[in-house]
């Protein structure tokens, strides 16, 4: 009985592995080609178009489009917004992740769900919320007008909308990381005599720093590229409340293709830079862990 099984097994071994490798190769080739073609059609081609269109009238026209003061204002506004929003969301994300990973409290699951909310809501709605709150006919509209404060169609509104849309990124990145790493290192630090701040800055922060950087990078990418929410609250005032994505739309609608695609190319480069940082962070992070 056992000999028969052995023989059958041996016979199978001579014919099967070759067959399997051959079939296997086809399947592998098929999947790899499909994914590459798909990426080329959906991702690479449009991205290439951006640069082709931007440079279609030559490099001088391309550079010239950045001399436009409105374009410069849009770039400046985007950078300022990201510069304010990312640090605030970083602090918030750290606090939220810390409290969720380290403590047990009532409403913890509600907090986790709420953090995800901006990812689920359409960006346009996110913008609308702020118009409903702070707009002229909104809840605080009259009060704001009386005190001569402008939020909607001004910088604060843009920042609020961007903050709302981007706040999940840091927390989302840190919560699983902190939960996985546990509390022991902090406890060790405490028994060694370290206080709360020292434990946080010397132990916790270095422990989660790669996750934190990654979260900030994602947060920044979204903050710079956000269109929908910002479009609703900005009012599209040229040179004043136009961020880069909004400015691109305006230029495009004016048939200024070179200008539109030049700014778009800048945004794309920023995105590429973000991805490079992310890759570096991931690699360094893996090597250290």
């Amino acid at each position: 009985m056992s000999r028969a099984v052995m023989a059958g097994h041996a016979a199978g071994e001579t014919s099967r592995p070759g067959q399997r490798t051959w079939a296997h190769a086809i399947v592998r080739w098929f999947f790899i080609t499909t994914s590459l073609l798909f990426i080329a059609a959906v991702l690479l081609a449009p991205l290439a178009t951006v640069f082709v269109m931007a440079l279609s009238k030559g490099i001088e026209a391309y550079l010239h489009s950045f001399a436009d003061p409105d374009t410069l204002a849009a770039i400046r506004l985007t950078l300022i917004t990201a510069g304010v929003v990312v640090p605030i969301n970083t602090v918030f994300g750290l606090a939220a992740a810390w409290s969720i990973a380290k403590f047990e409290f009532r409403g913890k699951s509600v907090l986790i769900t709420l953090i995800d909310l901006p990812l689920a809501i359409s960006p346009v709605i996110s913008g609308m919320i702020f118009v409903l709150l702070f707009g002229l006919h909104g809840w605080f509209g009259v009060w704001l007008q009386e005190h001569d404060l402008s939020i909607i169609f001004a910088l604060p509104g843009i920042m609020l909308a961007t903050m709302f849309v981007t706040f999940p990124y840091v927390a989302r990145e840190l919560i699983p990381l902190m939960q996985q790493l546990g509390n022991n290192e902090e406890e060790a630090a405490i028994t060694l005599g370290a206080g709360g701040w020292m434990t946080f800055f010397r132990v916790t922060l270095p422990k989660v720093r790669w996750g934190l950087v990654y979260g900030m990078v994602l947060c920044n990418a979204r903050a710079m590229g956000e269109f929908g929410a910002v479009s609703v609250v900005s009012g599209h005032i040229r040179g004043l409340t136009n961020t880069m994505p909004l400015h691109i739309e305006i230029l495009y609608n004016e048939y200024n293709f070179v200008g539109a695609f030049a700014v778009a190319s800048l945004l794309t480069l920023l995105a590429a830079l973000t991805l490079v940082i992310k890759t570096l962070v991931e690699r360094t992070g893996y090597r250290r862990r």
Binding site: N184, E187, A188, A189, T191, L192
Partner: peptide, 28 residues
């Protein structure tokens, strides 16, 4: 805990991963 003056060793070591051996030992 930090004022009790005890030394505690954990099952999973709980070393500070981003610090060298020297920095770990010198922490306290």
């Amino acid at each position: 805990a930090r004022k009790r003056g005890v030394g505690l060793v954990f099952q999973n070591y709980a070393l500070f991963q981003h610090m060298t051996v020297a920095e770990n030992i010198e922490f306290a």
